[in-house]
């Protein structure tokens, strides 16, 4: 079995100090392997989103370590983490977080362009990603001109553009109806089946069930886990 794409080791995160101290995470360890989709479930305030922001390098743990693709995020520094987000990690938000001033294709091409890719090649890659999420005709539309499901598909295209190894999705179906949500999960699942590692934060069992493993988080701790062990999943996916 190869190394995990994402590895969180004993990660804690404390917001604020003194009386206002909030323990978002208390020593969480987690691994996500290539080809695997891990769902994180838990009620509001359980720390599941903190876990994701830390995994994406948007926030730093108070203690513990995070490695993505074998690279330690703490050692990578701010610019290193930014580089990682441009190239290896795709992030999908509940409220899409598309830039309204940019067209669909430009939003998708954003990480590549930020990484210094040429406009032409970034745009071609964006087209491929848009095709993958079934929005090939929408390249020049602005986010405002699209439905919620279309917008989230754009966001997913942005998260997968340029062969990302890790996809982090924070309640990506939160603002969508069940059927549209299922479509979004299908896209994420397909990407994982194609070899990426995925971490999905959700509070809905129906979406969590798309994952190979479901991890329950409560009060900043992993309390339970359902699903096959990663090794069997890995074997199944590789063979199937």
């Amino acid at each position: 079995m190869s190394d995990p794409v994402l590895r969180l080791t004993d990660v804690s995160r404390v917001h604020g100090t003194g009386a206002a101290e909030v323990h978002a995470l208390r020593g969480v360890s987690l691994e996500a392997y290539a080809g695997e989709l891990v769902a994180i479930m838990g009620p509001s305030g359980s720390g599941k989103s903190s876990l994701l922001t830390i995994a994406g390098g948007l926030d730093s743990p108070t203690s513990g370590s995070v490695t993505v693709d074998g690279q330690d995020l703490g050692e990578a520094g701010i610019s290193g983490r930014a580089k990682l987000r441009r190239t290896s990690v795709g992030y999908v938000f509940q409220d899409f977080n598309l830039i309204p001033a940019l067209t669909a294709a430009e939003n998708v091409a954003l990480p590549l362009e930020l990484d210094g890719a040429g406009r032409r090649s970034a745009r071609d890659a964006a087209r491929v990603a848009l095709e993958e999420v079934g929005l090939d005709g929408f390249a020049d539309r602005f986010p405002d001109e699209m439905s919620g499901g279309q917008r989230q598909r754009i966001a997913i295209a942005r998260a997968i553009v340029g062969e990302r190894r890790l996809i982090l999705a924070d309640e990506p179906t939160g603002a969508l109806d069940t059927e549209t949500g299922e479509d979004i999960l299908k896209l994420i699942r397909a990407r994982c089946d194609a070899g990426a590692a995925g971490v999905l934060v959700t509070h809905e069992p129906r979406y969590a069930s798309w994952a190979d493993r479901v991890i329950y988080v409560r009060d900043g701790l992993v309390v339970d886990e359902a699903g096959e062990t990663p090794s069997t999943v890995f074997a199944v996916e590789v063979e199937g």
Partner: peptide, 8 residues
Amino acid sequence: TLSAVGAR
């Protein structure tokens, strides 16, 4: 958002 997708 720019930051989240890895802007320098």
